[in-house]
Computed example of a mutant assay.
Amino acid sequence: MEKNIAEIRQDYVRHSLRKKDVDENPIKQFQKWLTEALTAEVREATAMNMATVSEQGVPSSRILLLKDVNEQGFVFYTNYQSNKARQLEHNPATALTFFWPELERQVRIQGVVKKVSKEESEEYFRSRPKNSQIGAWASPQSSVISNRDILEERERKLQEKFRGQDILPKPEQWGGYIVEPFLLEFWQGRASRLHDRILYTLEDKAWKINRLAP
């Protein structure tokens, strides 16, 4: 590499985060930060890294898109036959990370997943563009395939099958999860690497707030 990556540095000076200024409810604090990220036109502000663990204890992670956040937690949708879904079936504990570099912010979440209702999954599925609905039907997610032609042929056949239909039925193997959090950490970049870190932990059904050293 021509550039020495060990020498790449950036000082963070845009914002600060004080314990006395955060909301008592971490979900509301997250919604506030997400709104600010959307207002600032952060690229893919709803993108989140999600970590799961296999039956052998091997971690894996991938980027997903948040589709809802409410008092119960964080909602996303996927194929229930995918690797991550199988891992969540074995171990429903998960970790999410949001990173908004334009605001020099990160949010880290730990929680337990549950499937959302079939009705909720169907409602969201109907809201997707038709091509995305076709994609959910066409892809045997996480399965080994010999080439891309297989996907394109499946897509072609499904486009023909559902010609004239704007809304498709939801595949049985596709639906949503909600991550019910028990820990959230809000990280605000600061100068000299003395970052602000505010930690929420759920104890006896109440949120406890602490500041962490960077």
Rank of each mutant, 00 (worst) to 15 (best):
N210E: 15
L158N: 10
I8A: 06
E155A: 13
E120W: 03
R126A: 12
Q106W: 03
P169M: 01
S132C: 07
Y177K: 00
Y80W: 11
S60R: 09
K20W: 02
L64T: 00
E2A: 07
I198F: 04
S121Y: 04
P214V: 06
T97W: 00
E24H: 07
I178S: 00
Q188E: 12
L183T: 12
M48E: 00
A138R: 09
Y177A: 01
I8C: 06
L194I: 11
E180M: 13
L183H: 14
A136W: 01
Q10E: 13
S54V: 08
F182H: 15
R43T: 06
D23S: 14
Q188P: 05
N131Q: 15
G164D: 05
V13Y: 00
L202E: 12
A6F: 12
H90S: 14
N49R: 07
L66T: 03
I145D: 08
I178D: 02
S146P: 00
N91H: 14
Y80C: 05
D166L: 11
N91I: 09
A51P: 04
N70A: 09
V69Y: 04
S146Q: 15
R163Y: 12
F76C: 01
Q31K: 14
R126N: 12
K205Q: 15
T46C: 03
P129S: 08
K118P: 00
R62Q: 07
F99M: 09
K28E: 15
K19W: 02
L88N: 04
H195M: 11
N70T: 04
P129Q: 07
A51R: 04
G164R: 06
L183D: 09
G73Y: 02
D21L: 07
D21N: 13
T46H: 02
P214M: 05
G111I: 02
D11Q: 10
S82I: 12
Q31W: 02
V112Y: 10
G164A: 06
T52E: 05
Q188I: 10
L158K: 08
E122V: 06
I178G: 00
Y124N: 01
V13Q: 09
I145T: 08
T78S: 15
M1D: 08
I27C: 02
M50R: 01
Y200H: 11
R148Y: 13
N83Q: 15
R18S: 14
K28M: 13
E89L: 13
N83L: 14
T46K: 11
E152K: 13
I5M: 10
M1W: 06
P140D: 14
K115R: 15
T35V: 01
N25I: 12
S139T: 15
R9M: 08
I63E: 02
K67D: 00
E119C: 01
H15Y: 14
L34M: 14
D23Q: 12
